[in-house]
Structures are given as C-alpha cells and as structure tokens.
Design a protein around this nucleic acid. Structure first.
Lengths: 204, 204
DNA sequence: ACGGACTTGCACAGTAACGTGCAATTGCAC
DNA sequence: GTGCAATTGCACGTTACTGTGCAAGTCCGT
C-alpha cells in the first residue's frame, strides 16, 4: 500500500488501466460483479483494486465517465460540419456504433449500481444535442413522427440497445449491423426507407 | 405458520393477492427491493410472505408468469381474426400498451433477479408469434426494413419500453401515448407515416 | 544489488439480506 | 363464542460483500 498516490509509475498505471478494462468486461456480463470478481479477472488481488480506487462506486464512476466521453467524442467527430439532419443522424449512429461496448455498459448500469438519474445527468448534454438535431429535422420536414423530439431521442437510444442485443444473439450479422441500425433509426424517424438506404450508402 | 397449504381460506388468498400486487409496485420502483420492503409495503410481516412463497425467487417467478400471461392475453385478444399484418401490429400494440405496468416489470427484472435468459424463455412464444407476423408483413411488402424479422421484433419491444419511459418522464402525453406509440412502431417497420396514422385512426 | 514504489495475503469489523423455527396471538367462519 | 388457520414477533444461523490495517513480499529503475 502506502503511496500509489503519485500515479506516475508505469507499472501502477498499467494495472489501473487493466483493472478498468477488465471491470468493463465483467460489469457487462454481470452488472453486480463484486470487487473480488473484478480483481481476480484482472489478475490482481482485491486489496490492490482498493489501492487504485477508494470504493466500488469510484471505480464505476470512472468507467461511466470514460464511456460518456467516448460516446460524445464519437458523436461529435462523426457529424462535424454536417448540416442535413438526416445525414447527421446517419453519421452519428454509424460513429456511435463503434463504441458499442461502452454504450452497453451505460444501459446495464442504468438500472443498478448507479442511479438512473445519475446516468441521465451525465448523458444530458449528449441527449440535448440529439434532441435539437431531431427537432430541426422535424421542423424542416426531413423527419416525420407523431412523437415529440425528446421522446424520439429516447426511442433512438433504445433502438441502438435492441440492435446490439440482436447482434449478440446472432439475429443480425455483425458486419452489416451498423448500416442496418442506421437505416432502422432513420426509418423510425420517418425517413422513407429508400432515402435512408441512399444516405447510408453514400455516407458509409 | 403450520399449514397455509390448504390455500382455500379467503383471508390467506386475499393476503397472497395483495402481496403480489404490492410486490409488483415495489419491484417496479426498485428491482432490488428486499422481502422486508415488500412485506412492509403490503402491511404484513416478512415471515408471512415466506408463508405464501417459499423464496424470493418463487415470488418473482409468479409475478413474471402473471405478467407474461397478461401480455399474451392482451396480444391475442387485440388482434384476433385480423389478417392484415399492419393492422394486426397496430391492434397488438394498442392492446399491449394497456398492460404497461406489467410489461415494465419484465424489463426491470430482465437485467436483475431473473436471468435474461429466463425472461427470454418465457417470452419466447409471444415473440415467435410476433416474428411470424413481421415476417409476413415483410414478405407481402407491407413492411420495409433492412432488418430481419427477429431483429425487428427486438426493436419493437425496446421501443415500447422507451416510450413508457418517455411517458413517465413527462415527455409524452399519457392520453395520446398509446396511439403515438403505435404509429411509431409501424413507422419503424417501414410503413409510411400517412398510412400508419390512417390505420391507427380507424382501429382506435 | 538496493531502495522505494507497488503488490500480496490475511485478518477484521460492519452491514445487509435470506431462509427457518417456534411460541404466542389474532381474527374469520361456522 | 369458539376453534383452527393464518399471522405475528423474535431469535437464530448462514452467506456474501464492502472497506481497512498491516506486515511481508515482489518487481523495476538506477
């Protein structure tokens, strides 16, 4: 024990990183995974994990922060400079799809260790951006839906989760999943199937 | 304790029923609600709950069975004798929406006490019927989607959950929610928005 | 090969839940 | 009104997990 507070030694850093990575995988399998399960899976003793993170909550919180960051980065990078709402959604979904694992972690934890409200708070900026995008699409007639933009944003989030599950269960070929998911999301927003496919073809 | 095995006394039956109802409400709020929380909420002592259900798992299992049954009944009754796939989906969604609470319980428990596989197993018959319905719609050109029918079935399930959340969060007016949800689901299946609205108008 | 950062192993206290046994009590039904 | 099922109250034993303390070991750079 003693220090580890310096946080500059490569060995400690590597361990910390590995613990986070393994924790992600374990929590994905079982959102209630104990510190001991996580530690063992990381090839480390439980006591060591407490050397890097003061509590279970701190560990998970770090993971959530990283996940949100990865999503935000993917989303922003994916649709930078795109003005057409439909194309923006298409690029956003394709980009976010790459971070599938981390997205799933959020979903998994949303109803467990972390309060739902906690997750929502951290995702708020990301969601608000999406709501504005959807609203713009509805206003300009690119999207058509009886749902208000905020509800549509919920639907989009859940659709992505459903499609990730479908891939896990072998109902959807992983190779084409990203493109299929994008078409599905656009379709749900009221974009005609033909136009959605066109868009995806030219974007991907 | 002693008996309670006769199960014919009205007092015991009423208690058992109330315990189940209250347990549903408590588990909806907190999927990890303890037996003590449930018992207290039902105005009963923990020990009494164990008089009716041998274990926590047995209690929850009963609840899940009832939920699946309610869903299946609503689904079947809703679309009995309807041949057009789009209309069948519309009627099914509108009917299932009525059992929202029980549907939400399944979702809440799906990632907790009960194994995901356990839930899937019990929902299998219901889902297979839906898959066949969707497949028929895809084959006849009523539906359009790059997703195979089984994946589309997943998407529909998750959409309903997302929309229930939206209602809870005040993003969607409860009065119109059922109809909006139905249009959204049909739209996600590739039915043009105009046709979807027509259908819902004549069915509801 | 030496020193300090990092890790291990073990032990401990605290907490929370489950499932059970049994004597005492309550309250319907007849 | 009384009898018997049902409920209560309480006390156990068990299990599992969190968070901490500390001494002994291990590994790496220098």
């Amino acid at each position: 024990m003693t220090a580890m507070t310096t946080g500059n030694t490569s060995r400690a850093d590597a361990n910390r990183r590995r613990i986070l990575d393994v924790a992600l995988a374990e929590l994905l399998r079982d959102p209630d995974a104990s510190m001991d399960q996580i530690a063992r899976a990381a090839g480390v003793v439980r006591r060591t994990v407490y050397g890097h993170f003061p509590s279970r909550e701190a560990l998970i919180s770090t993971l959530v922060d990283e996940a949100v960051q990865a999503l935000a980065d993917a989303d922003a990078a994916g649709r930078a400079g795109v003005t057409d709402p439909a194309e923006a959604v298409a690029r956003s979904v394709l980009a976010v799809w790459q971070t599938a694992d981390r997205y799933r972690l959020l979903i998994a934890l949303a109803q467990r260790t972390v309060t739902v409200q906690g997750i929502r708070d951290r995702l708020a900026p990301l969601r608000e951006a999406k709501v504005r995008l959807l609203q713009r699409g509805l206003d300009t007639g690119v999207f058509h839906s009886p749902l208000p933009a905020p509800a549509l944003a919920y639907v989009h989030e859940q659709m992505l989760f459903a499609l990730m599950e479908a891939v896990n269960d072998g109902l959807l070929a992983a190779a084409q999943a990203g493109r299929s998911a994008t078409v599905a999301v656009l379709t749900a927003a009221g974009v005609p199937a033909s136009r959605a496919m066109e868009l995806v073809a030219e974007v991907a």
